[in-house]
Write a protein that binds this DNA or RNA. Sequence first.
RNA 1: GGCGACGUGGCCGAAUGGCUCAGGCAAGGGCCUGCAAAGCCCUCUAUCCGGGUUCGAUUCCCGGCGUCGCCUCCA
Length: 454
Amino acid sequence: MLKLYDTATRMVRPLELREPGTVSLYVCGPTVYGPPHLGHGKSTLVYDILRRYLESTGLVVRHVSNITDIEDKIIERAEREGRPWQEITTKCEAVWWQAMDAMDVLRPTDTPHATDYVDEMVAMIGDLIANESAYLTDDGIYMSVRSVEGYGLLAHQRLEDMLSGGGDREVVGAENKRDPADFALWKFTKPGEPSWPSPWGDGRPGWHSECVVMSLSLLGENFDLHAGGNDLKFPHHENERAQAVALGKVFANHWMHHAFVVDAEGEKLSKSLGNFTNLLDLVDTMDPRSYRLLLLQSHYRSPVQVNTDTVGAAERALAGLDTFARRASAAGVSGDIVDDELVAAFRERMDDDLDTASAMAIVFDAARRGNAAIDAADLDQAAVLAGSVHALCAAVGLKLKAVADVPADVLAKAAALDQARAARDFAVADALRAELQADGWLVETTKAGTTIRR
RNA sequence: GGCGACGUGGCCGAAUGGCUCAGGCAAGGGCCUGCAAAGCCCUCUAUCCGGGUUCGAUUCCCGGCGUCGCCUCCA
Protein backbone atom coordinates (compact mmCIF):
# COMPACT_ATOMS: atom_id res chain seq x y z
CA MET A 1 0.00 0.00 0.00
CA LEU A 2 1.14 3.48 -0.82
CA LYS A 3 2.57 5.55 2.00
CA LEU A 4 2.55 9.30 1.49
CA TYR A 5 3.77 12.29 3.45
CA ASP A 6 0.75 13.90 5.05
CA THR A 7 1.01 17.64 5.60
CA ALA A 8 -1.47 17.60 8.46
CA THR A 9 0.36 15.03 10.58
CA ARG A 10 3.81 15.74 9.09
CA MET A 11 4.40 12.05 8.77
CA VAL A 12 4.73 9.56 5.99
CA ARG A 13 1.74 7.38 6.61
CA PRO A 14 -0.38 4.91 4.64
CA LEU A 15 -2.96 6.42 2.36
CA GLU A 16 -6.05 4.94 3.90
CA LEU A 17 -8.93 4.42 1.56
CA ARG A 18 -12.47 5.26 2.56
CA GLU A 19 -13.69 2.66 0.12
CA PRO A 20 -11.37 -0.27 -0.52
CA GLY A 21 -10.19 -0.41 -4.11
CA THR A 22 -11.09 3.17 -4.91
CA VAL A 23 -9.06 6.31 -4.34
CA SER A 24 -10.85 9.64 -4.06
CA LEU A 25 -8.49 12.44 -5.02
CA TYR A 26 -9.03 16.16 -5.26
CA VAL A 27 -6.38 18.32 -6.89
CA CYS A 28 -6.76 22.08 -6.95
CA GLY A 29 -6.82 23.01 -10.61
CA PRO A 30 -5.92 26.18 -12.49
CA THR A 31 -7.49 29.60 -12.48
CA VAL A 32 -7.94 30.16 -16.19
CA TYR A 33 -6.72 33.69 -16.82
CA GLY A 34 -3.47 33.10 -18.73
CA PRO A 35 -1.32 30.46 -20.37
CA PRO A 36 -0.25 27.54 -18.19
CA HIS A 37 3.23 27.95 -16.74
CA LEU A 38 5.92 25.43 -15.91
CA GLY A 39 4.61 25.11 -12.36
CA HIS A 40 1.23 24.01 -13.63
CA GLY A 41 3.12 21.42 -15.62
CA LYS A 42 4.80 20.05 -12.52
CA SER A 43 1.55 20.00 -10.60
CA THR A 44 -0.42 18.13 -13.22
CA LEU A 45 2.43 15.74 -14.00
CA VAL A 46 3.01 14.88 -10.34
CA TYR A 47 -0.61 13.96 -9.81
CA ASP A 48 -0.88 12.25 -13.18
CA ILE A 49 2.07 10.09 -12.16
CA LEU A 50 0.39 9.36 -8.83
CA ARG A 51 -2.89 8.49 -10.49
CA ARG A 52 -1.39 6.29 -13.16
CA TYR A 53 0.69 4.49 -10.61
CA LEU A 54 -2.32 3.80 -8.41
CA GLU A 55 -4.25 2.59 -11.44
CA SER A 56 -1.38 0.36 -12.46
CA THR A 57 -1.72 -1.44 -9.15
CA GLY A 58 -5.36 -2.13 -9.87
CA LEU A 59 -7.01 0.68 -7.95
CA VAL A 60 -9.81 2.81 -9.36
CA VAL A 61 -9.05 6.51 -9.03
CA ARG A 62 -11.77 9.11 -8.85
CA HIS A 63 -9.68 12.12 -9.79
CA VAL A 64 -11.44 15.45 -9.40
CA SER A 65 -9.67 18.61 -10.48
CA ASN A 66 -11.49 21.88 -10.82
CA ILE A 67 -11.34 24.75 -13.24
CA THR A 68 -11.54 28.05 -11.40
CA ASP A 69 -13.38 30.14 -13.94
CA ILE A 70 -14.41 33.00 -11.71
CA GLU A 71 -11.79 34.82 -9.70
CA ASP A 72 -10.37 38.30 -9.23
CA LYS A 73 -7.56 37.81 -11.71
CA ILE A 74 -9.98 36.86 -14.44
CA ILE A 75 -12.04 39.95 -13.79
CA GLU A 76 -8.99 42.16 -13.73
CA ARG A 77 -7.81 40.89 -17.07
CA ALA A 78 -11.25 41.22 -18.62
CA GLU A 79 -11.45 44.83 -17.49
CA ARG A 80 -7.93 45.61 -18.57
CA GLU A 81 -8.48 44.22 -22.05
CA GLY A 82 -12.10 45.26 -22.38
CA ARG A 83 -13.23 41.73 -23.17
CA PRO A 84 -16.01 39.57 -21.76
CA TRP A 85 -14.59 37.47 -18.94
CA GLN A 86 -16.11 34.31 -20.41
CA GLU A 87 -14.07 34.82 -23.54
CA ILE A 88 -10.91 34.71 -21.44
CA THR A 89 -11.86 31.66 -19.42
CA THR A 90 -13.04 29.72 -22.46
CA LYS A 91 -9.90 30.50 -24.42
CA CYS A 92 -7.55 29.82 -21.53
CA GLU A 93 -9.22 26.57 -20.67
CA ALA A 94 -8.89 25.37 -24.27
CA VAL A 95 -5.20 26.21 -24.16
CA TRP A 96 -4.90 24.42 -20.82
CA TRP A 97 -6.25 21.15 -22.20
CA GLN A 98 -4.07 21.53 -25.26
CA ALA A 99 -1.02 21.62 -22.99
CA MET A 100 -2.31 18.71 -20.87
CA ASP A 101 -2.88 16.59 -23.96
CA ALA A 102 0.59 17.42 -25.24
CA MET A 103 2.06 16.22 -21.94
CA ASP A 104 -0.09 13.10 -22.05
CA VAL A 105 -1.73 14.02 -18.76
CA LEU A 106 -4.94 12.08 -18.35
CA ARG A 107 -8.07 14.15 -18.06
CA PRO A 108 -9.38 14.07 -14.51
CA THR A 109 -12.45 11.91 -14.11
CA ASP A 110 -14.31 15.09 -13.13
CA THR A 111 -13.47 18.68 -13.98
CA PRO A 112 -15.99 20.83 -12.14
CA HIS A 113 -16.21 24.49 -13.09
CA ALA A 114 -16.66 26.92 -10.23
CA THR A 115 -19.38 28.79 -12.10
CA ASP A 116 -21.51 25.63 -12.18
CA TYR A 117 -21.50 25.35 -8.40
CA VAL A 118 -22.42 28.86 -7.32
CA ASP A 119 -25.83 27.79 -6.02
CA GLU A 120 -24.23 25.21 -3.78
CA MET A 121 -21.69 27.75 -2.60
CA VAL A 122 -24.47 30.16 -1.69
CA ALA A 123 -26.22 27.39 0.21
CA MET A 124 -23.06 26.52 2.12
CA ILE A 125 -22.36 30.14 2.99
CA GLY A 126 -25.92 30.40 4.25
CA ASP A 127 -25.30 27.45 6.54
CA LEU A 128 -22.13 29.07 7.84
CA ILE A 129 -23.99 32.28 8.62
CA ALA A 130 -26.76 30.30 10.26
CA ASN A 131 -24.38 28.63 12.68
CA GLU A 132 -22.55 31.89 13.28
CA SER A 133 -19.29 30.84 11.70
CA ALA A 134 -19.63 33.61 9.15
CA TYR A 135 -20.87 37.19 9.21
CA LEU A 136 -22.11 39.89 6.91
CA THR A 137 -20.24 43.16 6.26
CA ASP A 138 -20.53 46.06 3.82
CA ASP A 139 -18.42 44.37 1.17
CA GLY A 140 -19.25 40.73 1.61
CA ILE A 141 -19.52 37.69 3.84
CA TYR A 142 -16.52 36.69 5.93
CA MET A 143 -15.60 33.49 7.66
CA SER A 144 -14.73 33.79 11.31
CA VAL A 145 -11.67 31.62 11.67
CA ARG A 146 -11.63 31.91 15.47
CA SER A 147 -14.79 29.84 15.47
CA VAL A 148 -13.05 26.90 13.85
CA GLU A 149 -11.51 24.26 15.98
CA GLY A 150 -8.01 23.33 14.93
CA TYR A 151 -7.50 26.27 12.60
CA GLY A 152 -3.81 26.16 11.65
CA LEU A 153 -3.66 22.39 11.16
CA LEU A 154 -1.88 22.71 7.84
CA ALA A 155 -0.03 25.94 8.54
CA HIS A 156 1.30 24.39 11.74
CA GLN A 157 1.21 27.72 13.45
CA ARG A 158 -0.95 29.36 16.01
CA LEU A 159 -3.15 32.11 14.69
CA GLU A 160 -1.39 34.61 16.91
CA ASP A 161 1.99 33.74 15.46
CA MET A 162 0.74 33.96 11.94
CA LEU A 163 -0.61 37.41 12.56
CA SER A 164 2.14 38.77 14.77
CA GLY A 165 4.74 39.35 12.10
CA GLY A 166 4.76 39.80 8.40
CA GLY A 167 6.33 43.23 8.62
CA ASP A 168 4.40 45.75 6.61
CA ARG A 169 2.01 43.42 4.88
CA GLU A 170 -1.47 44.63 4.33
CA VAL A 171 -4.49 42.87 5.69
CA VAL A 172 -7.04 42.42 2.92
CA GLY A 173 -10.44 43.88 3.78
CA ALA A 174 -9.14 45.01 7.16
CA GLU A 175 -11.74 47.70 7.61
CA ASN A 176 -14.61 45.24 7.51
CA LYS A 177 -13.26 42.16 9.20
CA ARG A 178 -13.72 41.30 12.82
CA ASP A 179 -10.38 39.56 12.82
CA PRO A 180 -7.47 40.08 10.44
CA ALA A 181 -7.32 36.36 9.69
CA ASP A 182 -10.93 36.13 8.55
CA PHE A 183 -11.41 35.51 4.86
CA ALA A 184 -14.04 36.30 2.25
CA LEU A 185 -16.68 33.75 1.40
CA TRP A 186 -18.76 36.04 -0.77
CA LYS A 187 -17.76 39.32 -2.36
CA PHE A 188 -20.44 41.82 -3.27
CA THR A 189 -20.25 42.85 -6.88
CA LYS A 190 -19.13 46.19 -8.21
CA PRO A 191 -20.73 47.64 -11.35
CA GLY A 192 -19.68 45.80 -14.49
CA GLU A 193 -18.39 42.74 -12.69
CA PRO A 194 -19.82 39.26 -13.11
CA SER A 195 -22.27 38.42 -10.39
CA TRP A 196 -24.68 35.83 -9.12
CA PRO A 197 -27.69 36.36 -6.90
CA SER A 198 -27.60 35.58 -3.20
CA PRO A 199 -29.88 36.28 -0.21
CA TRP A 200 -27.39 38.94 0.90
CA GLY A 201 -26.89 40.68 -2.41
CA ASP A 202 -25.40 40.01 -5.84
CA GLY A 203 -21.80 38.95 -5.82
CA ARG A 204 -19.34 36.17 -6.43
CA PRO A 205 -17.89 33.40 -4.30
CA GLY A 206 -14.49 33.61 -2.67
CA TRP A 207 -11.85 31.26 -3.99
CA HIS A 208 -11.68 29.18 -0.83
CA SER A 209 -15.39 28.47 -0.97
CA GLU A 210 -15.19 27.16 -4.50
CA CYS A 211 -12.92 24.21 -3.90
CA VAL A 212 -14.54 23.06 -0.67
CA VAL A 213 -17.95 22.92 -2.31
CA MET A 214 -16.75 21.15 -5.43
CA SER A 215 -14.68 18.60 -3.56
CA LEU A 216 -17.41 17.72 -1.07
CA SER A 217 -20.08 17.74 -3.73
CA LEU A 218 -18.29 15.30 -6.00
CA LEU A 219 -16.31 13.19 -3.54
CA GLY A 220 -18.33 13.46 -0.37
CA GLU A 221 -17.12 13.70 3.20
CA ASN A 222 -13.87 12.17 4.36
CA PHE A 223 -12.46 11.73 0.89
CA ASP A 224 -9.00 10.20 0.73
CA LEU A 225 -6.56 12.77 -0.54
CA HIS A 226 -6.50 16.50 -1.13
CA ALA A 227 -3.52 17.74 -3.10
CA GLY A 228 -1.90 20.82 -4.53
CA GLY A 229 1.15 23.05 -4.53
CA ASN A 230 3.04 23.96 -1.39
CA ASP A 231 1.63 27.45 -1.46
CA LEU A 232 -1.90 26.17 -1.19
CA LYS A 233 -1.36 24.72 2.28
CA PHE A 234 -2.06 28.09 3.70
CA PRO A 235 -4.35 29.84 3.39
CA HIS A 236 -6.24 28.05 0.65
CA HIS A 237 -6.44 24.52 2.00
CA GLU A 238 -6.58 25.66 5.59
CA ASN A 239 -9.55 27.80 4.70
CA GLU A 240 -11.28 25.10 2.71
CA ARG A 241 -10.97 22.85 5.70
CA ALA A 242 -12.17 25.56 8.05
CA GLN A 243 -15.48 25.82 6.21
CA ALA A 244 -16.05 22.08 6.19
CA VAL A 245 -15.15 21.74 9.85
CA ALA A 246 -17.39 24.65 10.82
CA LEU A 247 -20.27 22.75 9.25
CA GLY A 248 -19.42 19.61 11.17
CA LYS A 249 -18.18 17.81 8.09
CA VAL A 250 -15.17 15.54 7.93
CA PHE A 251 -12.90 16.85 5.20
CA ALA A 252 -9.89 15.27 3.50
CA ASN A 253 -8.21 12.39 5.28
CA HIS A 254 -4.75 12.99 3.83
CA TRP A 255 -3.01 16.12 2.52
CA MET A 256 -0.34 16.09 -0.15
CA HIS A 257 1.68 19.09 -1.27
CA HIS A 258 4.41 19.31 -3.87
CA ALA A 259 7.38 21.67 -4.07
CA PHE A 260 7.81 24.36 -6.66
CA VAL A 261 9.55 24.75 -9.92
CA VAL A 262 12.41 27.13 -9.16
CA ASP A 263 14.91 29.15 -11.13
CA ALA A 264 18.67 28.80 -11.16
CA GLU A 265 18.95 30.68 -7.87
CA GLY A 266 16.44 28.39 -6.25
CA GLU A 267 13.78 31.04 -6.28
CA LYS A 268 10.17 30.39 -6.98
CA LEU A 269 9.07 30.64 -10.54
CA SER A 270 8.19 34.07 -11.78
CA LYS A 271 6.46 34.65 -15.06
CA SER A 272 9.04 33.27 -17.41
CA LEU A 273 11.79 30.99 -16.32
CA GLY A 274 14.90 29.43 -17.68
CA ASN A 275 14.63 29.34 -21.38
CA PHE A 276 10.95 28.59 -21.52
CA THR A 277 8.36 31.31 -21.48
CA ASN A 278 5.61 28.93 -20.44
CA LEU A 279 4.42 25.35 -20.60
CA LEU A 280 3.28 25.61 -24.21
CA ASP A 281 6.74 26.75 -25.16
CA LEU A 282 8.25 23.70 -23.45
CA VAL A 283 5.95 21.16 -25.09
CA ASP A 284 6.52 22.80 -28.46
CA THR A 285 10.30 22.85 -28.29
CA MET A 286 11.11 19.67 -26.36
CA ASP A 287 9.76 16.17 -26.19
CA PRO A 288 7.03 16.67 -23.55
CA ARG A 289 7.84 13.24 -22.12
CA SER A 290 11.21 14.57 -21.03
CA TYR A 291 9.54 16.96 -18.56
CA ARG A 292 7.75 13.98 -17.07
CA LEU A 293 11.01 12.06 -16.83
CA LEU A 294 12.79 15.05 -15.28
CA LEU A 295 10.18 15.10 -12.53
CA LEU A 296 10.35 11.34 -12.13
CA GLN A 297 14.07 11.65 -11.51
CA SER A 298 13.51 13.98 -8.57
CA HIS A 299 11.13 13.92 -5.63
CA TYR A 300 7.79 15.69 -5.71
CA ARG A 301 8.54 17.39 -2.38
CA SER A 302 11.84 18.79 -3.66
CA PRO A 303 12.12 21.96 -5.71
CA VAL A 304 13.17 21.36 -9.30
CA GLN A 305 14.82 23.51 -11.92
CA VAL A 306 13.17 23.32 -15.30
CA ASN A 307 15.20 24.73 -18.16
CA THR A 308 16.70 23.61 -21.44
CA ASP A 309 19.66 22.05 -19.62
CA THR A 310 17.69 19.95 -17.17
CA VAL A 311 14.93 19.01 -19.60
CA GLY A 312 17.59 18.37 -22.23
CA ALA A 313 19.43 15.94 -19.97
CA ALA A 314 16.16 14.15 -19.33
CA GLU A 315 15.49 14.10 -23.05
CA ARG A 316 18.79 12.31 -23.66
CA ALA A 317 18.03 9.85 -20.88
CA LEU A 318 14.65 9.23 -22.47
CA ALA A 319 16.34 8.64 -25.81
CA GLY A 320 18.21 5.78 -24.16
CA LEU A 321 14.97 4.16 -23.04
CA ASP A 322 13.45 4.67 -26.48
CA THR A 323 16.49 3.07 -28.04
CA PHE A 324 16.07 0.04 -25.86
CA ALA A 325 12.41 -0.19 -26.85
CA ARG A 326 13.39 0.11 -30.49
CA ARG A 327 16.15 -2.50 -30.27
CA ALA A 328 13.85 -4.88 -28.41
CA SER A 329 11.19 -4.40 -31.03
CA ALA A 330 13.71 -4.99 -33.82
CA ALA A 331 14.82 -8.14 -32.03
CA GLY A 332 11.22 -9.26 -31.87
CA VAL A 333 11.05 -9.36 -28.09
CA SER A 334 8.61 -6.58 -27.31
CA GLY A 335 6.14 -8.77 -25.51
CA ASP A 336 4.04 -8.37 -22.38
CA ILE A 337 6.02 -10.63 -20.08
CA VAL A 338 7.19 -8.89 -16.94
CA ASP A 339 9.62 -9.77 -14.22
CA ASP A 340 7.59 -9.90 -11.01
CA GLU A 341 10.62 -9.16 -8.88
CA LEU A 342 11.35 -6.00 -10.83
CA VAL A 343 7.78 -4.88 -10.50
CA ALA A 344 7.87 -5.59 -6.78
CA ALA A 345 11.10 -3.61 -6.34
CA PHE A 346 9.68 -0.75 -8.36
CA ARG A 347 6.49 -0.68 -6.30
CA GLU A 348 8.40 -0.81 -3.06
CA ARG A 349 10.15 2.41 -4.03
CA MET A 350 6.99 4.04 -5.32
CA ASP A 351 5.02 3.06 -2.24
CA ASP A 352 7.56 4.85 -0.08
CA ASP A 353 6.18 8.34 -0.56
CA LEU A 354 6.60 8.15 -4.33
CA ASP A 355 10.34 7.69 -4.48
CA THR A 356 10.18 7.97 -8.24
CA ALA A 357 13.89 8.65 -8.62
CA SER A 358 14.83 5.31 -7.10
CA ALA A 359 12.02 3.61 -8.97
CA MET A 360 13.34 4.96 -12.24
CA ALA A 361 16.85 3.83 -11.32
CA ILE A 362 15.42 0.31 -11.36
CA VAL A 363 13.98 0.94 -14.81
CA PHE A 364 17.23 2.33 -16.21
CA ASP A 365 19.10 -0.59 -14.80
CA ALA A 366 16.66 -3.03 -16.39
CA ALA A 367 17.04 -1.27 -19.73
CA ARG A 368 20.81 -1.53 -19.53
CA ARG A 369 20.63 -5.25 -18.75
CA GLY A 370 18.09 -5.64 -21.54
CA ASN A 371 20.46 -4.05 -24.04
CA ALA A 372 23.20 -6.35 -22.86
CA ALA A 373 20.88 -9.35 -23.29
CA ILE A 374 20.10 -8.28 -26.85
CA ASP A 375 23.80 -7.93 -27.57
CA ALA A 376 24.35 -11.40 -26.16
CA ALA A 377 21.40 -12.76 -28.19
CA ASP A 378 19.75 -13.89 -24.96
CA LEU A 379 16.28 -13.18 -26.25
CA ASP A 380 14.33 -14.78 -23.43
CA GLN A 381 16.03 -12.52 -20.93
CA ALA A 382 15.69 -9.53 -23.28
CA ALA A 383 11.97 -10.14 -23.65
CA VAL A 384 11.32 -10.15 -19.93
CA LEU A 385 13.34 -7.01 -19.43
CA ALA A 386 11.73 -5.25 -22.38
CA GLY A 387 8.27 -6.16 -21.16
CA SER A 388 9.14 -4.97 -17.67
CA VAL A 389 10.59 -1.67 -18.82
CA HIS A 390 7.52 -0.98 -20.93
CA ALA A 391 5.18 -1.85 -18.08
CA LEU A 392 7.03 0.16 -15.45
CA CYS A 393 7.30 3.19 -17.68
CA ALA A 394 3.62 2.94 -18.48
CA ALA A 395 2.88 2.79 -14.75
CA VAL A 396 4.12 6.35 -14.45
CA GLY A 397 2.72 7.55 -17.75
CA LEU A 398 5.84 7.29 -19.83
CA LYS A 399 5.20 5.81 -23.26
CA LEU A 400 8.33 4.61 -24.98
CA LYS A 401 8.69 4.94 -28.71
CA ALA A 402 9.72 1.69 -30.35
CA VAL A 403 9.17 3.08 -33.82
CA ALA A 404 10.26 6.42 -35.16
CA ASP A 405 8.09 8.41 -37.57
CA VAL A 406 10.15 8.71 -40.70
CA PRO A 407 8.92 10.09 -44.04
CA ALA A 408 9.16 7.92 -47.15
CA ASP A 409 11.79 10.00 -48.89
CA VAL A 410 14.08 9.73 -45.89
CA LEU A 411 13.56 5.98 -45.77
CA ALA A 412 14.41 5.81 -49.45
CA LYS A 413 17.66 7.61 -48.78
CA ALA A 414 18.41 5.14 -46.00
CA ALA A 415 17.79 2.27 -48.39
CA ALA A 416 20.19 3.83 -50.88
CA LEU A 417 22.69 4.14 -48.08
CA ASP A 418 22.40 0.44 -47.34
CA GLN A 419 22.87 -0.42 -51.03
CA ALA A 420 26.03 1.64 -51.14
CA ARG A 421 27.31 -0.09 -48.04
CA ALA A 422 26.51 -3.50 -49.47
CA ALA A 423 28.49 -2.50 -52.52
CA ARG A 424 31.22 -1.28 -50.16
CA ASP A 425 31.00 2.15 -51.76
CA PHE A 426 31.66 3.93 -48.49
CA ALA A 427 32.19 7.32 -50.07
CA VAL A 428 28.61 7.36 -51.34
CA ALA A 429 27.34 5.84 -48.08
CA ASP A 430 29.06 8.48 -45.97
CA ALA A 431 27.75 11.25 -48.21
CA LEU A 432 24.19 9.99 -47.85
CA ARG A 433 24.60 9.70 -44.10
CA ALA A 434 25.96 13.23 -43.90
CA GLU A 435 22.95 14.47 -45.88
CA LEU A 436 20.53 12.79 -43.51
CA GLN A 437 22.37 14.08 -40.47
CA ALA A 438 22.35 17.57 -41.90
CA ASP A 439 18.56 17.33 -41.99
CA GLY A 440 18.56 16.56 -38.30
CA TRP A 441 18.22 12.77 -38.42
CA LEU A 442 20.13 10.42 -36.18
CA VAL A 443 21.51 7.71 -38.38
CA GLU A 444 22.63 4.31 -37.19
CA THR A 445 24.16 2.04 -39.79
CA THR A 446 24.35 -1.48 -38.48
CA LYS A 447 24.84 -4.92 -39.92
CA ALA A 448 21.10 -5.37 -39.85
CA GLY A 449 20.55 -2.20 -41.85
CA THR A 450 20.21 1.50 -41.31
CA THR A 451 17.83 2.96 -38.77
CA ILE A 452 16.70 6.56 -38.79
CA ARG A 453 15.21 8.67 -36.07
CA ARG A 454 15.10 12.18 -34.78
C1' G B 1 9.04 38.87 13.78
C1' G B 2 6.66 33.59 13.60
C1' C B 3 6.75 28.70 11.22
C1' G B 4 9.18 25.44 7.90
C1' A B 5 12.49 23.25 4.16
C1' C B 6 17.10 22.54 2.07
C1' G B 7 22.82 22.39 1.52
C1' U B 8 25.44 14.96 -1.70
C1' G B 9 30.71 14.05 -7.18
C1' G B 10 31.72 18.56 -13.30
C1' C B 11 25.98 19.08 -13.46
C1' C B 12 21.00 16.98 -12.02
C1' G B 13 19.43 13.96 -8.18
C1' A B 14 17.84 9.47 -4.64
C1' A B 15 19.05 6.75 -0.39
C1' U B 16 21.42 5.61 4.11
C1' G B 17 23.86 4.97 11.98
C1' G B 18 28.70 1.00 9.70
C1' C B 19 28.92 -3.52 4.36
C1' U B 20 31.57 -1.17 -2.45
C1' C B 21 26.60 6.00 -0.68
C1' A B 22 21.35 4.62 -6.56
C1' G B 23 20.24 6.39 -11.24
C1' G B 24 20.53 10.13 -15.20
C1' C B 25 23.57 13.80 -17.91
C1' A B 26 28.65 15.05 -19.02
C1' A B 27 33.96 13.24 -19.38
C1' G B 28 38.00 9.44 -20.35
C1' G B 29 39.49 4.32 -21.93
C1' G B 30 38.00 -0.27 -24.24
C1' C B 31 34.77 -3.88 -27.13
C1' C B 32 31.75 -3.81 -31.42
C1' U B 33 31.59 -1.19 -36.41
C1' G B 34 34.26 -0.24 -43.23
C1' C B 35 34.08 4.47 -40.34
C1' A B 36 30.66 6.75 -37.26
C1' A B 37 26.26 6.21 -34.29
C1' A B 38 23.79 3.14 -30.92
C1' G B 39 24.72 -0.54 -27.36
C1' C B 40 27.80 -3.00 -23.78
C1' C B 41 32.17 -3.17 -20.33
C1' C B 42 35.58 -0.29 -17.36
C1' U B 43 37.14 4.38 -15.05
C1' C B 44 36.61 9.17 -12.71
C1' U B 45 34.94 12.80 -8.84
C1' A B 46 30.72 14.00 -3.25
C1' U B 47 27.89 13.96 1.63
C1' C B 48 28.61 23.10 3.67
C1' C B 49 31.53 24.32 8.43
C1' G B 50 32.31 23.52 13.89
C1' G B 51 31.01 20.87 18.15
C1' G B 52 28.23 16.69 20.59
C1' U B 53 26.00 11.59 21.15
C1' U B 54 28.09 6.78 19.46
C1' C B 55 32.60 1.49 18.98
C1' G B 56 31.21 4.12 14.39
C1' A B 57 27.53 9.86 11.39
C1' U B 58 26.71 12.03 5.35
C1' U B 59 22.54 10.13 8.25
C1' C B 60 20.70 11.70 15.09
C1' C B 61 21.39 16.40 18.44
C1' C B 62 23.31 21.59 19.12
C1' G B 63 25.55 25.89 16.96
C1' G B 64 27.23 28.55 12.60
C1' C B 65 27.23 29.89 7.48
C1' G B 66 24.45 29.86 3.02
C1' U B 67 19.92 29.28 0.06
C1' C B 68 14.77 29.02 -0.34
C1' G B 69 9.46 28.74 0.99
C1' C B 70 4.91 30.10 3.76
C1' C B 71 2.67 33.87 6.97
C1' U B 72 -0.67 38.40 0.84
C1' C B 73 -3.01 36.39 -5.28
C1' C B 74 -0.14 32.00 -6.42
C1' A B 75 0.88 24.95 -8.86
